[in-house]
Amino acid sequence: MLSRVANSIYWMSRYLERAENVARFIDVNLNLTLDMQGQLDEQWAPLVNTTGDFEQFAKRYPSPTRENVMHFLTFDRENPNSILSCVRHARENARSVREIISSEMWEQANRFYLLVKDASRDKFLLENPHEFYSSVKMSSHLFDGITEATMSHGEAWHFLQMGELLERADKTSRILDVKYFILLPEAQTIGTAIDNIQWAALLKSASALEMYRKHFKQIDPFKVADFLILNRDFPRSVLSCLDRATLSLHAITGSSEDAFSNKAEQGLGRLLGELNYTQIEEIIHEGLHEFLDKLQDRLNWIDDAIYESFFTLRPLTGKSSHLTPDQ
C-alpha cells in the first residue's frame, strides 16, 4: 500500500485511541475527586504532568484548576493532544484514506468528530462531564468494533492495529503514572484506605477494575502495576498491547517473529522480549516511575523507527534528479 496511506491509517487509529485515553485520564481524576471528598484537595496538575503537556499548559493558563485543565485537555484547539484536536486529526486522516477503510468506519470517525465538536459548543457540559467522557470512550470502542466487523485483516488493518496498540501501551503506562504525580500529604498514607481507593479509581479508568479483581481479588499497588504492565490476557496491559503490535508488525513485513528486518522490528522485539522475562518486583526495585519513563522513551523510539521504515521512501536511481527541477 501507499506509504502516505499507511501513515494516515496508523495516525488515524493512534489519534482515536489517544482521544479515548485522554477521556480516561480525566475520568480517573473525576473518580478520585468524588472518592476523596474533603480528605485531599482536588489535584488537577498531575494530569497535565502525566500527558507531558505541562509546559504548554503553563504558558497559556494561570493555574491548574479543574476548569482550566479540563478545558485544556478536552476542547482546547491549540493543544494538539486535546480530545477535540485528536478526533479532528483522526477524522482528517480518515478522510484522506476513505477509499481504504470501510464506509462504516469513515462514518463513525465522522460522527465521533461531530459529537465532540458539538459538545465543544455546549457551555454547561463541563459542569456534569461524566456522560460526555463516557460517550467519548464508547465512540472509540464503536469504531474499534466496526473496524473488527468490516475491515479485512490485510496490511492496512495491521497498520491500524499498530497505531492503536502502541498508543494504548503508552497511555496505560501514563495512567499508571498519574499516581506518582499525586502529592500525598504524608508517606504514611501508603497502604491506607485512601491509597486503596486511589488505586481502584486508577484501575477503573483503564476499564480494568473488574478484570483485576477476578485475577488478584485484593487491591495492592504492586499487583495493580503487575496487572497493568505485565498481564498477558488483559487487552489494555502494556505487555498485551506490545505483543499484538509485534504480530501486526511482522505480518506487515513478512519476516519471522524471532528475527528482524528493520529498526522498528528490532526495537519492538527487544522491548517485548525484556517485558516477557521481567517480574514486577524488579520493576518496583528499579522504581516504578523511572521504569515507566524509560518505557515511554522506548515507545517513542519505536514510533520513529516505524516512520523511517515504512513512511519515507526515496528514489535511489540517478533519474531522481527530476525531484529538484532546474530553476
Binding site: M1, E99, L313, K319
Partner: peptide, 27 residues
C-alpha cells in the same frame, strides 16, 4: 471514485518518475 473502483488514490508526492516509468511509493 478510487474507493468504488478499488484502486489507489494518490497525490503527486506519492508518485515518482524513475527509469522511464511512473512509480508510486508503497510500504
Amino acid at each position: 471514485l478510487a474507493q468504488q473502483m478499488g484502486v489507489e488514490l494518490v497525490e503527486g508526492s506519492d508518485l515518482v518518475v524513475m527509469d522511464g516509468f511512473v512509480h508510486m511509493r508503497t510500504t
